[in-house]
Each structure stands twice: as C-alpha cells, then as structure tokens.
Amino acid sequence: MNTLRLGLLRGGLEIKQFLRSRESVVFTLAFPLILLTVFGAVFGGEIAPGVTFTQYFAAGMIAAGLLSTGFQSLAIQIPIEREKGILKRLRGTPMPRAAYFIGKVVMVLAIGLLETILLVAVATLFFNVTLPENAGKWLTFLWVALLGIAACTLCGVAFSSLASSGRSGPAVVTPVAIVLQFISGVFFQYTELPSWMQDIASIFPLKWMTQGMRSVFLPDSFAAQEPSGSWQHGTIALVLGAWVVAGLVLCLLTFRWTERD
C-alpha cells in the first residue's frame, strides 16, 4: 500500500511535469488534434455508403492519440531522465522502484483520457462524427482503449532503452510512430494499402487498435469492408493482450536506470 501511495503521488508529479513542458503538450496533445482538424477539413466524401472519410480518420486518430501518449511520450521522456541522472538518483532513494513505474502509468492514463476526450469532442462538434448509442460499443471502446494503452505504455518503456541519449530519443522514436500510423489505417483506408504493408502492420498493436475503434464509431455494415469481413474483436483482444505480455517481458529484460557508458 505504501508503494501504491508513493506511486500515485509520483503520478501527480509526472502529470504536472508533463503539462509544464510545452514540447510534450504540443507533440502529444496538440499534434493529433491538429492532424484531425487539417485532414477533416481537407478530405471529404464517402468511402462507403453512410461512412465519410472523416469518420474513418477520426477513429484512427483516437487510436493514434493513445499510441502517442503511451509509446511515443515515454520512449522520449525516459532517455532524457536517464541522461540527466534523474533515474540514477531515484534508484538511490528509499522510494520503491515500482513507484516510479506506477507514476508513469498514472500520467499516461490521465493524459490519454484527456487526449481521447479532446479528439472525440472535436470529431463530434466539427465533423459530425456520431457517438455510439449502445452500451456494447462503449464497452468495446473501453477494453480496446485500456488494452491498447497498456501495450503502448509497456512498449514505450522497453523502447526507451534503444536511445543512446536523451537528445537522440525523438529521432529514434518519432519515425517509428509515424510509419506505424501510415501503415495501420490511420491516414489511409487500410484495405487500400499494399498487401505486404498490411501484413507488416498486422504484427503491431496500432493496426488492431484502429480496427477496434472503427468498430465503435463506424456502422456495423462497414465491417464487410475490413480484410476479414468482420471486426475480429476476439483477435483484437488476443493480439493486444499478447503485446501487453511481450512489452512487460521486454521491460524487465531491457530497462536501464543509467546510461550504457
């Protein structure tokens, strides 16, 4: 209980630090909103009967926002903290090491919730994206979001060990996040991508997160437009769950409190 309490206190500090960093706010919170606004204003028309491109894109951007909050932000923040010696000093304090990670999880959940609310609000107010009308779709939204952000958070912590310094973090992480968004059906209709690109995307969590969000915000009739002809909720849960386990294992094997040298 003491570890949990310290972790929650650490989480409050992490949230304050995040909101005080203009770079973090811009790239994590503002950038997905800017993309949603720009793409929604530029691209129109229907991609299927009763489904506009904006509806399709908004569902993908909600998933991409969770990727940005969980994976991208942590994979950039942690190398900076490691380079500045913050992690080394924290390890030398009586604070349990688990409290540090609990604090990161609290921060990711809080910022992810704020990001999702903002994206949904902009999509519904300015681009006529309709909200789900039954509890089943909201339940799907909840478990896809939780599994997705858990997988992204753990992968972000593990990926943070690849950056050789805090300065190189964005250069290592940002291209990966952008490529995943392009091949996972965020910016383009997934079925219009080359088959080899679809095969690569299906390995990673974002493709399944976007598909899960489409099942929430698009009509059930659109499931026929998916590669399998259905939403594949069972497969979505299985793949995201597998990435949660894989991410946890990678964190335990690769996380470093100090720089390599």
Rank of each mutant, 00 (worst) to 15 (best):
G60I: 06
L248M: 11
T28G: 00
A48Q: 10
M209R: 07
G241M: 02
F101P: 06
L147F: 00
Q181T: 07
T54W: 12
G185C: 11
A58Q: 06
I47K: 04
W143M: 11
K104G: 09
N128K: 14
V42Y: 01
L109H: 13
K88I: 11
F187C: 01
C155R: 11
V129T: 13
R167C: 07
S202T: 13
A135V: 14
L36V: 00
F57H: 11
L36Q: 06
I102F: 03
A163V: 06
Q198C: 02
A64F: 13
I102C: 08
D220K: 08
L6K: 12
V25F: 09
G136E: 08
F159T: 03
A201P: 02
M61D: 04
L142F: 11
A59R: 12
E46P: 11
L35E: 08
F217M: 11
F127K: 04
I80V: 15
A151H: 12
V38D: 08
V38R: 08
F255H: 13
T54A: 15
A171G: 13
L118P: 01
G148A: 04
S215K: 13
S215T: 10
A201G: 04
V157D: 07
V186R: 11
T3Y: 01
L36F: 05
T93D: 03
L180K: 02
L36D: 04
R256V: 05
S161F: 13
